[in-house]
Design a protein around this nucleic acid. Sequence first.
RNA 1: GGCAGAUUUCCCGAGUGGCCAAAGGGGGCUGACUGUAAAUCAGCUAGCAUCGCUUUCAUUGGUUCGAAUCCAAUAUCUGCCA
Length: 463
Amino acid sequence: MARSSQRPARMGQNGGVPETDSPLDVTTPASATGAPSSAPSTAMDPHPRQTAFSFEVGTRLTNADGSRSLGRTGTIRTPHGDIHTPAFIAVGTKATVKAVLPEAVADLGAQAVLANAYHLYLQPGSDILDAAGGLGTFMNWPGPTFTDSGGFQVMSLGSGFKKVIDMQGSTAEGGDDQVAPGKERLANVDEDGVWFKSHLNGDRHRFSPEISMGVQHRIGADIMFAFDELTTLHNSRGYQVESLERTRRWAKRCIVEHFRLTDERDPKPYQALFGVIQGAQYEDLRRKACRDLGEMPFDGFGIGGALEKENLGTIVGWCSEELPEDKPRHLLGISEPDDIFTAIENGADTFDCVSPTRVARNSAFYTANGRFNLSGRRYRADFTPLQEDCGCYTCTHYSRAYIHHLYKAKELVSHTLISIHNEYFVVSLVDRARQAIETGTFAELKASTLGAYYTGAPDPQGL
RNA sequence: GGCAGAUUUCCCGAGUGGCCAAAGGGGGCUGACUGUAAAUCAGCUAGCAUCGCUUUCAUUGGUUCGAAUCCAAUAUCUGCCA
């Protein structure tokens, strides 16, 4: 594959890990400290723009009053192709976008796929992905790939397990210890890393920055995320500070290990590494995290953590102001239409989210007029497509009545058809946003899209 | 024809005098889902309504302060014996 002809990865413009006052600082290895500046665009690179990672800002979004906003278009170049941003990245946690063939994922317009290091480490094992030639080859996805680090699972299997935290009963001062009675937390954090108890068979597994990087290197995605700790909104500020500092130390360890692993391999893989910004709802913490990680030689950044919908734009804006302008910003886990517009105008370049496929498996489909559940009896004899004028494979071939029938009959193809439509809906929405930035019509697109989507009215087609 | 056993709210199925409008499944209806422990989860599922009231456990008639639960007759079904 293309991989074998690539040169070693070298990230960022700063050439090394900054010194800090932390007692837990790790020493940057000589190979990393002495790393050349960002390989992709230098004259030293024999394969510029083809085999390496880079990011170019395109058109900048301007506000209604003519001032420049934080939003922009851009191009992320990876060894497996370009990603035109803003872009929605399809989530394929276990090396599959659930219920959708990779070919269909490509057909519906997705530019890249994001898998999960923790899940693939448990099953089938990252060594299998490595032996297969990497994630893309393994799953027959020729385009760019991402892997998440397993950081999200620190929260979802630990303190944030499902809905175990009773919002009413929470004092919000309990640190990371608030798990509902009778529920077992499957992840426990310490300074060095996290103990996970496998949800598959109860095995204990250790994850740390170094282990996550090792796993992600073997999986071989084009873009990896640093191993972070994701807190919840219920954690106290004191815990948020403590966690954020830990995530900063982990970020540095990820970079060191990433450089080490890259040097170790022959041929050298070319994988990019994104740092992940935490800090919950606190402006000072978010800005500090951006400054801290922004100085490290990451190729880009993820904006993660617990985000209240109302603060999403504000938080993304803080991050975009602080983070290096010339590096891509990925907003983790967002896909609702209003959130997408808000995030784009506040500087987010890429997104990923499980929502389009997860809700599809529970019969919910997106339309220009909102999201509705196809399981409703009103769709029983509705022979229109999920959405009139939709260009997706599902809508050009099948009716609501048919897919409703499949869902009620528990036929798995309903998951496939709705997932294709929902992924297309979000991917194409972000695509249109990108085009609108280029043509100066972003505000109009936002107003017309959200005006129709959030009417609060019942599905007009279905009645 | 004789003997024995059954009949519960859409379905299956608990319940054998008051705590029963009646467990638990299934089905149905509605809703939720934002870096996937998710083909998951939650609520509702006799009627009307604010506590509460009204109809309901094959049918009819009894016993009792009180019956899905006890008695009798009838109907239907299932075994076994002729």
